[in-house]
Design a protein around this nucleic acid. Sequence first.
DNA 1: GATGAATGAGCCTTCATTCAT
DNA 2: AATGAATGAAGGCTCATTCAT
Lengths: 200, 200, 200, 200
Amino acid sequence: MPKVGMPAIRKPQLINATMEAINSAGLQKASVAMISGYAGVSPAIINHYFGGKNGLLEATMRFVLRQLADGVQSRLQETDKNDVVGRIKAIVGGNFDPRQLDSKVVKTWLAFWSQAMHDEQLYRLQRANEKRLLSHLVYELKRVLPREQAIFVAQGIAALIDGIWLRGALTPTGINSDLAQKLIGDYLRLQLPEEILSRY
Amino acid sequence: MPKVGMPAIRKPQLINATMEAINSAGLQKASVAMISGYAGVSPAIINHYFGGKNGLLEATMRFVLRQLADGVQSRLQETDKNDVVGRIKAIVGGNFDPRQLDSKVVKTWLAFWSQAMHDEQLYRLQRANEKRLLSHLVYELKRVLPREQAIFVAQGIAALIDGIWLRGALTPTGINSDLAQKLIGDYLRLQLPEEILSRY
Amino acid sequence: MPKVGMPAIRKPQLINATMEAINSAGLQKASVAMISGYAGVSPAIINHYFGGKNGLLEATMRFVLRQLADGVQSRLQETDKNDVVGRIKAIVGGNFDPRQLDSKVVKTWLAFWSQAMHDEQLYRLQRANEKRLLSHLVYELKRVLPREQAIFVAQGIAALIDGIWLRGALTPTGINSDLAQKLIGDYLRLQLPEEILSRY
Amino acid sequence: MPKVGMPAIRKPQLINATMEAINSAGLQKASVAMISGYAGVSPAIINHYFGGKNGLLEATMRFVLRQLADGVQSRLQETDKNDVVGRIKAIVGGNFDPRQLDSKVVKTWLAFWSQAMHDEQLYRLQRANEKRLLSHLVYELKRVLPREQAIFVAQGIAALIDGIWLRGALTPTGINSDLAQKLIGDYLRLQLPEEILSRY
DNA sequence: GATGAATGAGCCTTCATTCAT
DNA sequence: AATGAATGAAGGCTCATTCAT
């Protein structure tokens, strides 16, 4: 085992174990002992690599957020810059990427959301992400709608995304990605002028 | 100390203290010591009246849910049974009742939502509530829309309610009730046939 | 309810409840709440009548000891003062009186015995009782045996009584009174000179 | 701190501390804090090594029982298999081994005996031990006495052992081992046929 | 006489973290 | 790099007791 490179192995391993622990027992009961158990390593190693439990939780949240951002970004890159509808659907699609709908990820996310209101660090991460979703949507919508209305519709879409996702978190069958995209696509269609829609 | 009536005083007092503790420190850090501190009583009394911390948390959730149901119910009773649009707006309005938008209540709710996925008892309560919202909406919408479409729109409205509410939980300024009702009213208007809307 | 006379009702009621609690849950778990529950009264009443839990426990032990002493005494009174064998059997019989073999009493006794080693008050009561059994036996045996041997045999009988009783406490079927008396009768027969035995 | 071998050091250390705590304060007051105090370690370590207070108590009882069994076994191994009287005295001697007569051990034992009636785990251990003593005795006695009588005498000896031991637990001077063996030896002599006794 | 209300002390346990190896 | 050992702090809960009624 090379000495360098261990962090690159251990960190993702522990982040994944964290999500597994949260998935099966909840954030409250996800002790370092349980997490390190899932990872098959000693609890002390968490301090070694993340400086403590908090560091690991924060890293886990960053990981989830980055995964989401990547999902959105890669879809946007594959979409014509002028295809407003397509780009919005790309943003929505990124939010319902299969990797984000995994039970582990959904529960982790919701746990962090709840936690964020009492943890400065998590709060900032969550806020930034939330704002980015909105600004992405507004940016695209402004190209086809007046500013005020663009913001209005963006808020509607963002609410639909989070609402579907939140309700799905509590449903035994999980989030229905198809229905989600149909609901939001329908909403978008009703909000955009005929001319825009017919363009594509 | 009066012999009778104490439970009627202590229980709401402790439920309120629980929400205050959750509001200021989060569910995870809301210890019985902190809660009883907010209530100005001894920690042991929680066991006396609720049989333990868990009993208190469950009672708190029941309280919040009942408050919501009452808000919806009282609005519905004041609305003409044939005024579909009015009744849906009553349901939405109940969900954005000022009492439900109090920071204390919002944070308590979100905390429970997150917790519900790992607590059988809370899960059942949450699920029942979630289903009731949907069935209320479907019931009204079916009177003016085909069954399939009624369900579809109901899901959209429910998602908007929860989504706005969830996003508002993280916003420093809290939930914007007016905007919420405007967004949902707009959605409803776009989904209903002209003839229905013009009726009122 | 006459004011005088209540103690005469409540005290035995609580002592009996104490034994029931010890019988079903053990001394360690016999809380005042449980005891008062068995008695159908409020926990506070124990302090009223016995000055605290300790007072009740001590009273309970006194009750058991007095019951034993009564059982022995009444049997001795019915036996000819010169019938040494009969009197010893009376003492033994008193120790295996049905009232003493009740599960409630057996468990209470053993609990107290164990407890006595760490409670000055209980220790004195237990010691006095233990010594009385021995001196009763020695007193009778001295009339037919040399002093040294009388003490020796008395210790044997006392040990048999307590040993049978202790082992019986752990047996699902409880103490076998007949076997007990047969074992001790046999022991006595082997220890006494022919002439004494033939006398009766 | 060495990585290996710690359990082998800590476990006996904690078991011994448990007996010391029981000796000086009784089982009821033997808190984990007190026990760990006697051991000079932190209370949390009890959970580390025994999974909780109960685990430690059970381990302590097992230790005492094994020590007794060892004392009997080693004496039996040093005794001719055909020397019935010698073998019975070996069994008796093992029960009055100095290690078993230590105040610490006596009080621990009695505490467990009393506790056993309300603790399934302890009950089984105690019962097994009690039965083993009896079966050991019966096995030897059957070689020189008819079955029925062998059982009868075995019960007498067992009762004497436990009775002497129980009474000694309450005596300030403790158990008198010599007297114990003399009493039981005498009992045995009276029960066995002349021919058997003269054989050795 | 009797009770419901309330409390403070203490107990067992969990847990994140530190440290020597 | 990794771990087993150990701990101190804190948490939930039980319980005997006190008090006003």
